[in-house]
Computed example of a mutant assay.
Amino acid sequence: MAITFDTDKQRLDRDMVYRYLSGESYWARGLPRDIFERSLDGALCIGGYDEHGRQVAFARVISDYATFAYLGDVFVLDSVRDQGTGKALMAFIQAHPQLQNLRRFMLATADAHGLYAQFGFAALSAPERIMEKVEPDIYRRLAAESKPA
C-alpha cells in the first residue's frame, strides 16, 4: 500500500484526527475540540494518505524552524500499522526542508522507543538539565469547569 505524505492543513481529515486523539490516544484523551484546533494552527502538520486519499496517519511538529522542534501527536491507524507507515512518516518528517539543522528535536513516547531510535532519537543526554511542568488531568478539569452547575 502506497502512502503519501504532505503538510497541507486543508487536506487533513480534522474530524478523524480529533476522534483519534481525544478518544483513542493515551496522551490526549478528552482533548477539547477548541484546543485541538488551536494545536493544529500552531504546528507543522503532516498527514499520511492511502491510494484512495483517505488519511491514515498524522503527526505535528512545533518548531521555531531554526534551533528547536518538538514532535507530537504521532499516530498510524490500525488498518496500515505494521506496514512501514510509521517509518515512512518519520522519514518524511526528518527530510522536511524546514526541519533541517536543528540543535534539538524532542518527543515523548510511552511505547514507540524502537521506532524513534531508528531515526536518531535517544534518552535525554542530560536529564538533570531538562525540566517540565505536567498537568495530566487538564482536559478532565477543563471539562468539569465547563459543565453547568
Rank of each mutant, 00 (worst) to 15 (best):
P148A: 10
A91E: 11
S39W: 09
D111K: 08
A110V: 12
R140G: 12
V76F: 10
D34I: 00
S25M: 04
A59P: 04
R11F: 00
F68M: 05
K133A: 15
R104A: 07
A88K: 13
L115K: 02
Q55A: 02
A126T: 13
S39G: 15
F36N: 09
G30K: 05
G120Q: 15
G120C: 13
R54P: 00
L99K: 05
F5R: 02
A117T: 14
D73L: 00
F75P: 03
F119W: 08
G53K: 06
M131Q: 14
L89I: 14
E132V: 10
P148F: 03
Q10T: 07
A43M: 07
F92K: 05
Y65L: 09
R54H: 00
T4K: 04
Y26Q: 13
M16R: 13
Q55R: 01
R141F: 06
L71F: 09
A91N: 05
M16E: 12
R140Y: 11
E145C: 04
G86K: 01
G48D: 05
Y18M: 00
V134F: 07
A110M: 13
I62Y: 13
V17P: 09
Y26I: 08
I46Y: 05
M131P: 01
I35W: 04
S22A: 15
F36S: 09
L102Q: 04
D111G: 13
P148V: 10
L107M: 08
D41Q: 13
L31G: 02
P32M: 06
Y116N: 08
A123W: 00
L102N: 06
L142W: 09
H96F: 06
M131Y: 12
D13V: 02
S125P: 03
W27Q: 13
H52L: 08
P97R: 01
Q118Y: 08
K9M: 01
P97C: 01
A43W: 08
S22E: 14
G114Y: 02
P32E: 09
Q10H: 06
R19F: 07
A123V: 00
A122I: 00
C45S: 11
G23D: 07
I130A: 13
V74F: 03
L124G: 06
G53W: 03
E24V: 11
R33A: 03
R11D: 03
A122Q: 11
L102K: 06
L142S: 10
L124T: 04
Y49C: 11
D50I: 00
K147F: 01
R81W: 02
A88T: 07
Q83A: 13
A110Y: 11
Y20S: 04
S25L: 03
L71P: 12
E132N: 15
I138Q: 09
F5N: 04
R11G: 00
S146V: 05
L21A: 14
Q100I: 04
A2C: 08
R33M: 01
H52W: 05
D64G: 03
D50K: 00
R103S: 10
T7Q: 03
D137Q: 15
M106R: 14
I138Y: 10
E51A: 12
E37I: 15
Y139N: 06
P97A: 00
S25I: 07
S25D: 05
Q10F: 01
R14Y: 04
D8T: 12
V61M: 03
A66K: 10
K133C: 14
A95S: 12
A149T: 07
Q118L: 11
T7A: 13
H52R: 14
A110R: 15
A110C: 09
R141I: 09
